[in-house]
Design a protein around this nucleic acid. Sequence first.
DNA 1: CAAAAAATTAACCATTTGGTTAAAACAAAG
DNA 2: CTTTGTTTTAACCAAATGGTTAATTTTTTG
Lengths: 209, 209
Amino acid sequence: MVNFLKATKIDKTTEADILAAAKKVFIARGMYGARMQDIADEAGINKALLHYYFKNKEQLFEQIFMDAAAQLFPRINMIFTSDNSLFEKIESFCEEYITVVQENPYLPLFVLNEMNRDPVYFIKKLWQKHSGPDPRKFLEQIEAEVKKGNIRHVSPLHLLMNLLSMTIFPFMARPMFQQFVGLDEMQFRMAMEQRKKEIPAFIINAMKR
Amino acid sequence: MVNFLKATKIDKTTEADILAAAKKVFIARGMYGARMQDIADEAGINKALLHYYFKNKEQLFEQIFMDAAAQLFPRINMIFTSDNSLFEKIESFCEEYITVVQENPYLPLFVLNEMNRDPVYFIKKLWQKHSGPDPRKFLEQIEAEVKKGNIRHVSPLHLLMNLLSMTIFPFMARPMFQQFVGLDEMQFRMAMEQRKKEIPAFIINAMKR
DNA sequence: CAAAAAATTAACCATTTGGTTAAAACAAAG
DNA sequence: CTTTGTTTTAACCAAATGGTTAATTTTTTG
C-alpha cells in the first residue's frame, strides 16, 4: 500500500527533516534540555532512525551549533575584513545582522550559551572551520581615525563592545524588554527594525567631535 | 565518636551549604543541566538530605533563580525610581551594576536564559515578589530633557536598550570577546572596570547637542 | 523480477536521574 | 539515662533517556 503523504517527498528529505527538527528543539531547549525523542517526534520519525542518520546526540548537536554559528559569525567578521570606511562598516553591520536575527531571534542566546558551557572546545571547533576572525584591522582603523582627528578619542575595544552589545543584546533580553515597556511581538519587531538606523546614528553621534 | 570536622559547624549551616552549592551548580549548568547529585556532592551531603531540606528540584531552582534575579533587577529598577538627573542615573547605574556583576559574572546569562525558557511563568513569579519595575518615569524624563533642549533628540526606548545592552552584554559574551581580542581574565576584568566610566561617557557624548 | 542495498520500525537495554523509605545517628528535654 | 524529636544516611524505586538490535519495508540495481 502506497503512503501518499510520504510519496510526495523525494529522496534525501529525511536528513533535512531531522536537521530542521533538531535545530528547532536544540535552539529552544539547549544541549541539556533537548530530548532525542522530541527531535524524532518533531521530524516525524522513529528514534532509531534518528540514530541511523546521526550517531549520537553530541554529533547532531555539534552540527546544529556550527550551522547556527555560521549564520552569525561571518556577519561579525565582515566588520573586521571589509575595506569600507568605519561609518559604512557600522551601518552595514547593523543592517545585516539585525536582518538575519529577526528571522532567527533565538540564535544569539543559543550560541552564546553553548559557548559559555565549554568555551575552549567550541572556540577550537569554530576557529578550525571558519578561520578565526581577526579584529586587529578594525581596531587599528578606529585608532587611525582618532589620530587623523576625524572622530573624538574613543577606545577601540569599547567601541567594538558597544556596537556588538547594542545590536545583539536586545534579542537575548526580549522577554525582559517586552515586559518592562509592555511591547507585543509586532512592536518589538518594529523596534528592532528601527535599530538598524538608530544604533549607527547613536554611535556616530558619540564619536563625532 | 565525635566528628571534629563537622563539630566546628553550627546549627543551621546545612541549609546555607545547600543553597551555595545549588547556586553554583544551577548557574553553571542551568535548570536542565544541573543534577541533584552534583548539588548534594558540592554541598558535601547525601541526596536524601537534599530532598529533606528542599522538596524537589523545581522548588530549589526557583529559590536560586529568585535570589539571582533579586541581585540584578533592583539595580535596574534604580534607574526607574530614583530622583536623580538623567546623567547621574546613567553613571550610577553603570557603576553599581558592573560592580555587582564583576563578583557574579554568570548571573546575567543565567537569569536571561531561564527567563527565555518560560517568560510568562518567571515574569509572573518575579513581579509578584518585587513589584514590577515601571520605566515610564525614566522614559518621560528622557523626553522631557529632549523637549527642554538639553539633549539631542533621542528615542527613550532605544536609549534604555542601549544602556542596558552595553552594560550587561559583555559579561554574557565574555568568551567571544576574550577570544576575539585575546584578553586574559585579568585584562577582561580591567576592561569591565573601565566601562563603568566609558559607557556613561559614550552615552552622554551621543546625547550632547 | 530477484537479489542486494538502503531506509525504517518495534522492541529492548543499560544508565542516569529525581525522588522515596526506613533505619540509624545525633541532639534536646525531662 | 531514657524519651522524644531532629538530622543524616544507605538502600531502593520508577520513570526517563540515550542508544542498540534484529527484523521489516522500501528502493535500487543487475
